[in-house]
């Protein structure tokens, strides 16, 4: 396996290599009207080099000295106008899970992207380990009091893979009971963590994300950071075995420092019906300001896939095999976390 040789190069004390930017992001966006294409065509004959930056820059240096062709601002207005028209007349499609690609592409991702690129400066490692198509189960460590790690992983899967993929996450039922949050989660393509939904998505060839530590992982104290909790009951392994898809261990470093949870107000949590009520150095002391995550430097490493299609059909019903595979995934993630942490000098500077 030639790819497998690449990872140990960084493991001996070296720092992860900087993220290589994929080709211009905007090119992959669907729903861009003909106006945009014409603008690009007009820009293509423009000899100046800064024109590519104009696309990324969001239209500040947009106005090009072309006399007739629509300017970048006009193209943007047309794009937004078409999007709003599409939304207001309901001319878009959702799948059976409620996944709204149009909204995810044009609203959810642009909202998360600044956080991903500028606040957490996420670096992805091992993107070649994620298959470009077909079902795969991404298993990651959970941390940070609020599930920012999950949201950042969806951006990583969309922006940093050679082909953008939508990570369909399996979330706790609590999420779907919350007004606003539940509806948004459905529209972004996420669904309830249960075997039926996991298998339906995996066999439909989707990239599914699961955080098997659940509330125990995300709500652990800052003192326990980067110590993996129990990996559920291995339900994710049996789902992968039944669908015959590879399991991709994913290690996220940096999320633990976003909201360092130093205490838990149990009675308040019970009153609100949530698993924990966190106390961080800034929350609830500084009020809404405490909701701003600390700008830690993040690394997301996709590990080598663990293939499950070699096992025989009844393997999912063999608890010992399921436990062993669960442990294997857990150990892989834990070791990768230690390695990444050893290479990191500072939680905020990387």
């Amino acid at each position: 396996m030639p790819e497998a040789r690449v990872i140990p190069l960084r493991s001996d004390g070296g720092r992860p290599r900087p993220r290589t930017r994929p080709a211009p992001r905007r090119a992959s966006r669907p729903g861009v009207g003909s106006l945009q294409e014409r603008t690009d065509a007009a820009r293509g004959i423009e000899p100046r080099g800064e024109v590519v930056d104009a696309v990324e820059g969001g239209g500040e240096i947009a106005a090009l000295p072309t006399a007739e062709g629509p300017t970048d601002l006009e193209a943007r207005v047309a794009e937004v106008g078409e999007f709003l028209q599409r939304r207001l007349t309901g001319r878009y499609t959702v799948d059976d899970f409620g996944f709204d690609r149009d909204l995810t592409e044009n609203v959810v991702m642009p909202l998360l992207r600044p956080l991903y690129e500028h606040w957490f400066r996420v670096e992805t490692i091992g993107t070649e380990n994620v298959p470009l198509s077909g079902g795969a189960l991404l298993v990651a460590n959970h941390s940070g009091t609020l599930p920012l790690d999950a949201l950042m992983t969806t951006v990583a899967a969309h922006d940093d893979l050679p082909v953008p993929r939508y990570l369909r996450m399996l979330a706790a039922d609590l999420v779907f009971g919350l007004p606003g949050v539940g509806a948004a989660a459905r529209k972004a393509g996420h669904t309830l963590a249960c075997n039926a939904d996991a298998e339906a998505l995996l066999s439909a060839g989707e990239l599914v994300g699961v955080w098997p530590e659940g509330f125990k992982g995300i709500g652990k104290d800052f003192a326990d950071r980067y110590k993996l909790q129990r990996f559920g009951r291995g339900g994710f392994v049996s789902a992968a075995l039944r669908s015959g898809v590879p399991i991709i261990p994913c290690s996220i470093v940096g999320a633990e420092e976003t909201y360092p949870k130093i205490a838990d107000i149990g009675p308040l949590a019970r009153l609100l019906g949530v698993p924990y009520f966190p106390v961080t150095p800034t929350w609830p002391l500084l009020g809404p300001l405490g909701l701003v995550p600390l700008p830690s430097k993040w690394y997301i490493e996709f590990g080598e896939p663990i293939h499950t299609d070699a096992y025989e059909p009844g393997a999912a019903d063999d608890p010992m095999l399921v436990f062993n595979l669960t442990d294997q995934v857990r150990e892989t993630i834990q070791q990768t976390l230690y390695r990444l942490l050893a290479g990191r000098r500072n939680a905020f500077l990387g």
Binding site: D173, L174, F176, G182, T191, L192, A196, D197, A200
Partner: peptide
């Protein structure tokens, strides 16, 4: 309910 899978089969 919020605890239901995305799609119901006849045996759910």
């Amino acid at each position: 309910s919020r605890r239901d899978p995305a799609t119901f089969t006849e045996t759910t």
